[in-house]
Amino acid sequence: MRQPPVDYIARTREQYSALGHPVYKWVKNEDTPPFVKPKGEPSSWRVGLVASGGIYAVGQPAFHFKDDTSFRAIASDIDRGDLRVTHFAYDLTDARNDPNVVLPLDPLQRLAAAGGIGEVGPSAYTFMGGIYSSRKVRDQLAPAIADRLVSDEVDVALMVPV
């Protein structure tokens, strides 16, 4: 039988309450988000990729679990066998088995090969979500990642949280 989507905000409230933690204050934006129309056809787009699943590459330090606001650039043509995944808050089984479930490089490459997009950006940008401070995300991490995407001259960006 089908059930409605899991209400993670309500379940977090219940879990924190049961654990004796104070109520987590989720970000709630009631304003209209910024919105730009991409230029040209999808077949011409360079597509950027940003993922918060805790993906790193062999040779890079892994993320730590205490409000780590650092991020990594991972070459989009990386040998997939060099991808690693670490995160404190979700079941990593499938992500470690096939990193495409949190970093969809192969589906983007297939779409590019089929002409559905122009190309994948030179790098994917990865960090470890679950950063408790939304202020640090908004004021530090977001502008730094945006700088990279602007520098890569991507036309659009695919954002992949977990």
């Binding site: 910024p34 940003v50 502008p143 990642i145 960006a157 954002m159």
Partner: peptide, 10 residues
């Protein structure tokens, strides 16, 4: 991630 999306879109 939505916060970052908003920044990038901006």
């Amino acid at each position: 991630m939505g916060l970052i999306a908003r920044e990038v879109e901006g």
